[in-house]
Simulated scan of single mutants.
Amino acid sequence: MALKARPAERAGDLEKITVNLGYVDLGHVDLLVREGFYSNRTDFIRTAIRNQLASHSEAVKQSIARHTLELGLRRYSREELEAVRAAGEKLRIHVLGLAMIDEDVMPDLARETIASIHVLGAFQASNAVKAALADRIA
């Protein structure tokens, strides 16, 4: 299976994670970097992760469909949430990727319009909005 080309990632598009490796595994990574197979440790780790995701791509697609997850970046603006409130509705947010609530969204508007949040990836919102929605974030 061929991997799809990905657009260049910018620093703001990335989430930092920590990986603990045993010394022997780390030594193997460093050896591959030194031998020129990878440009650095991060390049090795990203390649390994992408290869694993590619090998499980069908299971991921089925799970996304089964759980009705939105894939990628999903941004919620103040205007969108005001329209949800005006319609008397509540959102159930399910995102695989990055879910963002704009900085100008007030905590009371978020509580009135968001019933639940389930994000596999990263969730960005002001600290006040996160606190207001704490009991709704899975």
Rank of each mutant, 00 (worst) to 15 (best):
E15F: 11
L120G: 09
E35M: 08
D135T: 14
E80C: 03
A48G: 10
V33I: 05
G22N: 06
Q124Y: 06
A83M: 05
A110W: 06
G22H: 03
I114M: 01
P7K: 13
E112N: 01
A59I: 12
A110T: 01
L69D: 04
N51Q: 14
A132M: 04
G22S: 05
G27I: 06
A86M: 00
G27Y: 02
D108K: 08
E58P: 03
A48M: 11
H94C: 01
A83E: 10
G121W: 01
F123E: 00
R78F: 03
R66E: 03
D43M: 09
I117D: 09
A110N: 04
D25R: 10
I101S: 02
K16Y: 11
E112V: 00
E79Q: 13
E58Y: 09
L53K: 15
L73H: 10
A128Q: 14
F37T: 12
A2H: 15
N40W: 06
I137E: 05
Y38C: 00
Y38S: 01
A131V: 04
L91S: 03
I49F: 14
I93S: 00
N40P: 00
L14Y: 01
D102F: 03
D13Y: 00
M106K: 14
A8G: 04
A2Y: 13
L91E: 06
G88E: 05
S126T: 15
A86S: 06
G36I: 12
T113Y: 09
E103N: 10
V84R: 15
F44V: 02
A86Y: 03
A99M: 07
H56T: 12
V33G: 01
N20R: 15
K4H: 03
F37G: 05
A11Y: 05
H118G: 09
E112L: 08
R66C: 02
N51K: 15
V129L: 04
F123C: 03
A87K: 04
V60I: 14
S55V: 05
H28F: 12
A59G: 06
L69C: 03
G12S: 14
Y76Q: 00
T18Q: 13
Q62H: 13
D108W: 01
D104P: 00
S39T: 14
V84N: 08
A132P: 04
L133A: 10
L81K: 02
G36M: 08
A54Y: 03
V24D: 14
V129I: 07
G27K: 11
T113G: 02
A87M: 03
L73I: 14
V105R: 02
G27S: 12
D135N: 12
F123W: 07
I45E: 00
I117W: 11
G36T: 05
L98G: 01
M106H: 11
T42I: 08
L73W: 13
T47L: 01
G36E: 02
V24N: 10
L98T: 09
S39D: 12
A128H: 07
D108Q: 06
R85Q: 07
I101Y: 02
E80Y: 14
Q52L: 13
T113A: 13
I64L: 11
F44Q: 07
A122N: 08
I64F: 02
G36Q: 04
S39N: 08
R74A: 04
A115L: 13
